[in-house]
Simulated assay, not measured.
Amino acid sequence: MSATESARGSDVIRQILVIAAFVFMIIGDAVGLGAFGGTPIQEAQGGSFSPDASYLTPATEAFAIWTPIYLGLAIYVVWQALPSQRTRTRQRSLGWLIALTMVLNGLWLVTVQFLSVWATVACIVLLLAALVVTYLRAVRTHLPSDGAVDGILIDGVTGLHLGWVALATVANVAAALTATVPADWEGAASVLGVIVLVVVAVVALGVSAAGGWRIAPVLSIAWGLAWLAVARLTGDLVDVPIGIAAIVVAAVVLIIPAVARLLRERTLAD
């Protein structure tokens, strides 16, 4: 299969829709941050998304991960709109999917403002599913000849996005449960939280392995886990078992893929 083919009308439509999806996401982000008269995310849904409202919500500083994700997506949007990218097979395969992930990202932020906390769970699960499909297709179709820019702007950015949304999905579900289940469930929070973090470790390693032990997804997962540990060990909602488990899982999901990647590259070099 060649990297490029003859131009067709859908190529320009795809490029335009990718741009439109990014604009929608940014507007949704502005709404989610409280612009246009909206309520800031941490105060929306009765404060369900506050770092101290749920045992599995990271500290506020964790959300700085959106800066490299959004910057990477912005650069991708400009790059994919270039005439040189219009007919590339890889763009045709992935452009629509990346646009879908951006739309769902923006839609989640709008859902926070206007719908229920469980509606946000449904939206983020859809976003996570779309990112899994996009990422796996990206890593499986990437060729060495595609170059570093291609790898960074498609595989790398999508991987970061996927990793963060995977952890955010856990936090979102925990926030929804905290807002709706009986208060006496709090007694089981430590045990359940540690179990969930073990599952996060398994999922993170599975995603990394499926992607040839790429680091991008686990970087954002480990980042979020580190700030989850900060929130549980130093915040108002202290839970030492969850905080320690978050530190251990963060180390595991970083070290194992890094070592596996190194061994894989050495094997291929031999």
Rank of each mutant, 00 (worst) to 15 (best):
A59D: 10
S2I: 15
G28L: 09
E5Q: 13
L33K: 15
V249G: 10
A44Q: 09
V132N: 04
T111Y: 02
W66I: 00
E43P: 11
T101K: 00
L17D: 03
M102Q: 02
L56K: 03
I65M: 10
L131T: 14
R92K: 06
T111G: 03
A210Q: 11
W164A: 03
S6F: 09
I41A: 13
T60Q: 05
M25Q: 12
S190I: 08
P58I: 02
E61R: 03
W118H: 09
A175V: 05
I19V: 15
V199K: 10
A119F: 06
D236C: 04
T101I: 06
L127A: 01
L167M: 07
I27H: 06
A74S: 11
D52E: 07
A175R: 10
G32Q: 05
A189E: 10
A175N: 04
I244K: 02
I16F: 12
P68N: 00
M102F: 11
R264H: 07
R140V: 04
A7I: 13
P241S: 05
P51Q: 04
L115R: 05
D150N: 10
R88Q: 03
Q113L: 02
E5C: 13
I69M: 07
T4H: 13
S208A: 12
L33S: 14
S54Q: 02
L197W: 07
A30D: 02
P241H: 01
V110W: 12
G163K: 08
R140G: 06
V149E: 14
V125F: 13
V202N: 07
G212N: 06
A62P: 01
I247E: 14
I256P: 15
A99P: 11
T169H: 07
S48H: 04
V202M: 08
I13K: 07
A175S: 13
V133W: 05
L136K: 08
V23P: 09
L17V: 05
D155M: 02
R137N: 15
P217S: 08
A138I: 02
M25F: 15
L73K: 02
W96Q: 11
R8N: 04
L33H: 15
A62G: 04
T101P: 09
Q91K: 07
A166W: 01
G243D: 09
G47E: 12
A64P: 01
W79H: 07
A251M: 03
I16K: 12
G224S: 03
L94F: 05
I41W: 10
T67R: 00
V110Q: 07
V181D: 11
